[in-house]
Design a protein around this nucleic acid. Structure first.
Lengths: 355, 355
DNA sequence: GTTGAGTACGTAAGCGGTTACCTTATCGAA
DNA sequence: TTCGATAAGGTAACCGCTTACGTACTCAAC
């Protein structure tokens, strides 16, 4: 690996000009079959890997879409790091980008801002998919002046001047709570939310309230307990909850990890799930299928979120003048044991299509 | 977002030459504090995102490391797709790259080869980390002529002319089996392997045999059953196994997902775990902690694998003449319920350091 | 006053592809 | 024979940065 070979070497060793090499590589016309052969073998012989930088500069397109997501590890101790669902989003983004002939560049934002961000990530891509609140408002707007950006799972995104793709948190929880009320006769239902300022948590709580009001039940102004979106967070919140009240009929948790934490605490408190109290989560992570009782939850199409995100920036790259697009992906109710259901067949819910 | 702004515009609007803008942006010397201010504000005002392609071309370094991993989804039906541990590897790679000021570009190889590969991925990066067998031998060697490549978890990699980072599969399983024999008195132990040609599976089986021989027990020439590295694969293999023999003392599975499949089949067969038969996995995926009985397994440092992989190519980029590096990461025995242990404290095992 | 060193810049030649525009050769039709 | 069309392929400008050099100016030392 002395030096990376260039198009000039390929041209020389096949006796043509670089223009012809370029033409052959792109299947355009203007060369004979014999020439084509010579160029192709020369390229293969050299193991030529064309410089993406040079090509990108020339055609003004790097062929790379960036995916930005939050990672808190290095910030808050060994805390929980970036949420599990990000993995799925990454996979989805990869798939969509590859299908479109692009590649995806990923980067966790650990407090990176401004100049660093622009140089280390933004400059290398043709567009950015940004998960949740991984970027400050300032950076978002600054970068958006030069690069297409699509926001993922960003609440209040309708308002903002961005393309967005989000998940129908509200309908998901609404369907879930309606199920608890209607099919399991629950009346006393509590909501254990994630971080108070989390957009996801707020939306889910909103769905919770809607369902209760719809059922003619009293709806609280704020979640009955809150904690981090982690097992520990859920455990802590439920522990606190049980201190000053009798156990409710059902505990609706902000996400699956919190629900798993809740299950652990309830087991210790000798409360049976679902006999004494039903428990539900949100996300549908893998662990929910294996834990006992298996977890009733709302499935988010995380992978699709990533796919649509990439799709969205690709679309805007293709047509910068197009009007803003705010897509909302449907969620799906997944009924398992922890709510009292026996079967595990999922029931489809919400479907408000892209706006 | 009319047109991406360039260094020329920054230069013009701050009244200096592009050389000076460049100097200011890189904190080198040769400008006055006043000039620095002017340039910086101009850049911020424009929201200038410098072209990574242009910069990459000029300094002959894209600042991107590629990570290639297998994904079989689109090839073999809705089969299982790329293994779960890849997510962890991705996270590790991202972290290491970001720490070094680079970014990571990910791409699943779904049969992509030759020319496409070179253009879509290889050309965009400064080096490649390749998971397992995501690339054909031919592509590997071809690309390696122009790009630093580090192989991950690639058996027989010692021989190959590549930098490698792998995991000590063999010692991991050896420690596991020794534990079953010594602490739980198992004699009749079977190995349920992954795909016959999987390097990982072969290495793990080798460790299995070593442990048995070391304990003076008869060691089989080949795994007692085999299947895909999935729940279905494990279930299928164990079902076949139980058809023509009495249940063994212990079933050592090729990975956690197979072990989970095994647990399901054993439950249906009314065999108690661990009372009647012990079951173990490999990998330590999250589900293993939640399933009942919790799964005894061997933890692979997946994240570290990704980190070391990136580290390795970065090192080689820095010093192309350096001699081959073959790192082997230690594994760790994780004792939980499924082997008969009560506690869940992990015991450290193997530690053969980098070679 | 001349010289030398140092500071603060500007100039322009790359980096490795792409592609608009030319040139040359070939061939059928007028 | 001449002409126009078409095929095959070369020339060189350009994409947006970096950086080796060159230049102008200041200041201290001789």
């Amino acid at each position: 690996m002395a030096e990376r070979s260039t198009i000039y070497e390929v041209a020389r060793s096949s006796g043509v000009s670089t223009a012809t090499v370029s033409r052959v590589m792109h299947n355009s016309t203007g060369y004979s079959p014999a020439t084509r052969e010579r160029v192709l073998t020369a390229a293969a012989d050299l193991g030529w890997v064309p410089s993406g930088s040079a090509r990108g500069l020339a055609i003004r397109r790097a062929g790379i879409i960036g995916l930005l997501f939050p990672d808190f590890t290095s910030m808050g101790e060994a805390e929980e790091e970036s949420p599990l669902y990000v993995d799925q989003v990454i996979r989805g983004a990869e798939r969509a980008a590859t299908a479109a002939g692009d590649a995806v560049l990923i980067a966790a934002t650990r407090g990176t801002t401004g100049r660093d961000l622009a140089w280390s990530v933004a400059g290398k891509v043709d567009g950015l998919v940004v998960v949740a609140r991984s970027l400050t408002q300032a950076d978002l707007h600054s970068i958006a002046r030069n690069l297409p950006i699509t926001l993922l799972a960003h609440r209040g995104s309708r308002r903002a001047n961005f393309d967005t793709v989000s998940v129908d948190n509200r309908s998901g929880v609404r369907a879930l709570v309606e199920h608890l009320v209607t099919d399991h006769g629950c009346r006393d239902i509590v909501f254990v939310g994630g971080p108070a300022r989390s957009p996801d948590s707020m939306e889910r709580f909103a769905g919770f309230r809607e369902a209760l009001r719809g059922a003619g039940l009293p709806a609280p102004r704020s979640p009955h307990a809150e904690g981090a979106f982690t097992e520990a967070g859920g455990a802590h919140a439920v522990r606190a909850l049980l201190v000053d009240r009798r156990h409710p009929d059902a505990i609706v948790c902000g996400n699956d990890e919190m629900a798993i934490g809740a299950l652990a605490v309830l087991a210790i408190a000798k409360l049976r799930v679902p006999a004494d109290v039903a428990v539900t989560g949100f996300d549908d992570i893998a662990a929910g299928r294996h834990i006992r009782p298996s977890l009733t939850t709302v499935r988010q199409p995380m992978r699709e979120l990533g796919e649509q995100g990439v799709h969205s920036v690709l679309t805007r790259i293709g047509d910068p003048e197009r009007r803003r697009l705010n897509a909302v992906l449907p969620t799906e109710l997944v009924l398992r044991r922890s709510c009292g259901c026996r079967s595990a067949k999922p029931a489809s819910t919400s479907a408000r299509p892209a706006a």
